[in-house]
Structure formats: C-alpha cells, structure tokens
Amino acid sequence: MRASDEPIISVRNLSKHYPLRSWWGGKGSVFRAVENVSFDIRPGETLGLVGESGSGKSTIGRAVTMLNPPTEGSVAFEGTNLSMLSAKAMRAKRARIQTVFQDPYAALNPRMSVGDYVSEAFKLHRPDMSRAERREAVAGLFERVGLEPRFAGRFPHQFSGGQRQRVCIARAIALKPSFIVADEPIAALDVSIQAQVVNLLQDLQAELGLSYLFISHDLRMVRYLCHRVAVLWRGRIVELAESDALYDDPRHPYTRRLLGAVPVPVPAVERARLAAESAAPASAIAEGGDLVEVAPGHWVATPPEDRP
C-alpha cells in the first residue's frame, strides 16, 4: 500500500448503544443503534452510506466526528485515535473534520447574518485574523460556493433552501478540512437544486482534495457521487463494495431488496418488480455475520454456514 493510500478515516468495531429505562423508572435493556461497524475512507474518496430510515446512518456520522462519541470501538483520523484526545486536542482536530447537516435552516443561527455565521469558524480557530481579513475570507468562500459576496449581510430567512445549504458548505470548508461528513445534504432540497449541490461537492473535492462520508437514502445520487458504498441494515454493514460493483451485482438479500425499491419510469417493469417483491417472504433476508470478501473489494455479511 502506498503512503497516499493510507486511510484518512479508519473506523474499527464502532458501536453506539443507548440505555433504555422501564416504565417504572428502573434500569432496562440497551438499544443497540449501531453494532460492530468497520470501514476506511481514503484521501479524496467518497464513501456512501445507505439504508432505510432508522438503520443508524446519522448515528455513525455523529460518532465518526465525535459529536456523539461511540460506546465501543475506535475512530482514527489521519492516524490519531480521536477517542483518546482531550477536549482541547479534539477542538484543534475539528478544524480538519467538518459536517454538513440535512436541514440547512436548522443548522444556521436565525439571529446571525450568514457572513457572521461563516466567520465564526475563523474567530474560534484563527484568532490572529483581523476583521478585514475575516471579511475578505468570507467573500472568497461565498464566491467559491456560488453565492454573491454582497449577500453576507443577509439573514438565513432571506435565502432559498439551496442557498442556505451553500452557506453551510462555505462554513464547512472555511478552515480547509480534509474530511467532511455530508449527512443527507440534499434531502431537504428541491429536486432541481439537488444536482447543483452535488456538483458543488464534487468540484470542491477535486479542488481541495476532500474526503466525504456521504449519508443518503437517494440511491441514484449515491451511485453518481460515491466511489464506494456501504449498505447499513439494523445498525450493521451488510455489504461494502465499489459503487458499480454493488449496484450491478448486489450480493446481500437486503441490498437487492433496497435497490429493487427504487422506482423505474417503465410501468410494466415496475409492476413486475412489485409482484416479485410481494411474493418474496420477509424471512428471506438473513442478517448474516462478519463481512467476508466474496470478490476483490466486495464484502458481504455472510452467515457462518455459508462462508467459504
């Protein structure tokens, strides 16, 4: 493996559990939101994370960035185990790890101009910058994400959803990070705007050498944007492969069912797909165990009795 192929993010056996309490106030069982998840993301790579609602996608995104630290396992960023860092050291690392959230309006402060919102990153991490330097840097960031610098004095409610997401992206790249978690960044946007935001993310990746963990339920957009895709089911990764390999040759029953749920514009094909889906028993999906490499770079959760 070449030095440039060393992963920028290395997740090993990550689990996130939440304690449950019974109705009478005593201690109850544990809800296992994510269980024993492992993956790597290389420099300049986009890893897609897909799965149905409640499968644990956003939980993984927050655990990887230490916004909600994992219960078990490790997250290494550029060779450093983030869970072992002090609060001060983690704050320094956050300049290199950023997040773009699903709802841009909720991410913005409605009482703060968008220019001040973006410049907050410089105030926290670059206190040596003067006000004029911050203003100039914000103007450059706005131009980079396709916004007029003169909009910096406006407030979030004066923008469209797509423009607000561009502001959030400008904030995310302000400190020149190397890794960004994009948590459903286009889900709240109009279809006509989604492609523009995805193209912006691609352009920034090429320009800045960014790595992404792209969390989404839009399977078509994931195939377009991501180099590799991990399929999450019930808090576990059941399949992980190169994008084309996973879409063209899905191996896990849940992956096939997930891809089969994507609507197609041909009514006859759609009717045949729905008929076949209704005929397949739900028990046909087996959770499986550890990931096994069934083809070069193609990993599938396979029950012990089915392993080679």
Rank of each mutant, 00 (worst) to 15 (best):
I8F: 04
V11S: 13
R21T: 07
W24E: 03
G25Y: 14
K27T: 12
K27L: 11
G28R: 04
S29D: 02
S29K: 05
R32N: 09
A33L: 07
F39V: 03
R42D: 08
P43Y: 02
S55T: 01
K57T: 08
S58W: 10
S58D: 05
T59P: 00
I60N: 10
A63K: 09
T65Y: 10
L67T: 14
N68L: 14
P69W: 07
E72G: 09
V75T: 08
F77N: 13
F77W: 02
E78A: 13
L82G: 12
L82Q: 05
S83Q: 08
S83V: 01
L85H: 02
L85A: 06
S86P: 08
M90I: 08
K93S: 00
A95L: 03
R96T: 02
R96G: 06
R96I: 00
I97E: 14
Q98Y: 08
V100D: 06
A106C: 12
A107V: 03
N109D: 04
P110S: 08
P110H: 12
S113P: 15
V118A: 05
S119W: 01
K123V: 10
R126L: 10
M129E: 00
E133C: 10
L141Y: 10
F142Q: 14
F142Y: 12
R150H: 09
A152Y: 15
F155N: 12
F155Q: 15
F155I: 11
G161F: 14
R166S: 02
A170G: 00
R171E: 00
I173Q: 05
I180C: 12
A182C: 15
D183F: 13
D183L: 12
Q194A: 14
L200Q: 13
D203C: 06
L210A: 03
L213E: 13
L219P: 00
M221V: 15
C226H: 13
C226P: 08
V231I: 11
L232Q: 06
R236F: 01
I237M: 15
V238G: 02
V238I: 13
E242C: 08
E242L: 02
E242A: 15
R251Y: 14
T255P: 13
R256S: 07
G260W: 10
V264T: 13
A268Q: 12
R273Q: 15
L274Y: 14
A280W: 02
A282P: 09
A284V: 06
I285P: 04
G288Y: 08
G289Q: 11
V292C: 01
V292Q: 09
A295L: 05
W299C: 04
T302Y: 00
P304K: 15
P304G: 03
E305A: 14
